[in-house]
Amino acid sequence: MRPIVLLGLAALAFSTSVFANQKVVVYNWSQYIPDGLVAQFEKETGIDVEYSTYESNESMYAKLKLMKSSGYDVVVPSAYFVSKMRKEGMLHPVDKTLIPNLKNLDTNLLNKPYDPNNQYSIPYLWGSTGIAVNGEEIDPKSITSWSDLWNQKFAGDVLLTDDVREVFQIALAIKGYSGNTRNEKEIKEAYELLKTLMPNVQAFNSDAPRMPYLAGDTNIGMIWNGEAWMAKEETKHLHYIYPKEGAIFWVDSFVIPKNASNVKAAHAFINFMLKATSAKKCMEHTGYATPNLAGRALLSNKVKNSPIINPSKEDIERGEFQDDVGDVIQIYQKYWNMLKTGAK
């Protein structure tokens, strides 16, 4: 009799939450999730979340590689890092039966070359890098292209992101090459072009990209569209421009590292983030576009129709999504160091 009672009690205890006493360790970009969403997940599922953030794909990758793809349960790399980590066997396959909310996603953003059939990754948000202009100082209509950054009147004023791939993609786009080129000759040409931009460069920013614009330190330069969106809360004058040579596009996806210890809870977290209401909040807060159609349907027209978050079809076609370049990254890095140190 007694064991049966105990079993019954145990069953009762488990029924309140299958995840009681479980945890999930989430490693995400900084400022890339709305306030309160993690707490809501904890409340709904009973899973504790350990949350930490990173500033670049490279530092995230270095950490995971060093920890033999363990220590974290959910990570959010950009597509070209999904591809790299997938090829290096650092990822755990996603069990789609545990993520019923997958049905909410736009199929146009699934099954891409960086991860065929989304075996290892589920897209979270996508966005772009374009040009930011302070309308108080510079007429935003006069800026239409990446090459406008080379204009002599912006000497010492232009802000670039401190990201080798993004900065090279500008020059490669102007030259008409792919931003994902593995051809050293093309990279070198891009370097030569970027060298002529250096007198205009004020800084390679490693802060939140909107801050130097808000602080009034710079009036023109590169920015991520979500940052331009967030800056709208503080100023009306920051304009976001899709350059005619094409903006830089990226997708960031949820992945589960190969040796994650809480795989089930990781799936629960991803499934939660794919709920229509979660996706809506993410897009409103971060200013990046969600691939979640059910979530989009809940958005106000202001967000749904914002050109900052939602590039036109032509803008997308002109732009280019980032992809992995393999070992060639060391060639990029070599020219990047030369650029920053002003080598002859």
Partner: peptide
């Protein structure tokens, strides 16, 4: 990085880049 806009590199920057970015 913060005050020099990552243009006036110190030796520490070069070392950091090799460890984190170029690997």
């Amino acid at each position: 990085d913060l005050l020099g806009g990552a243009k006036n590199l110190l030796l520490g920057n070069l070392i950091k880049t090799e460890f984190l970015s170029t690997q």
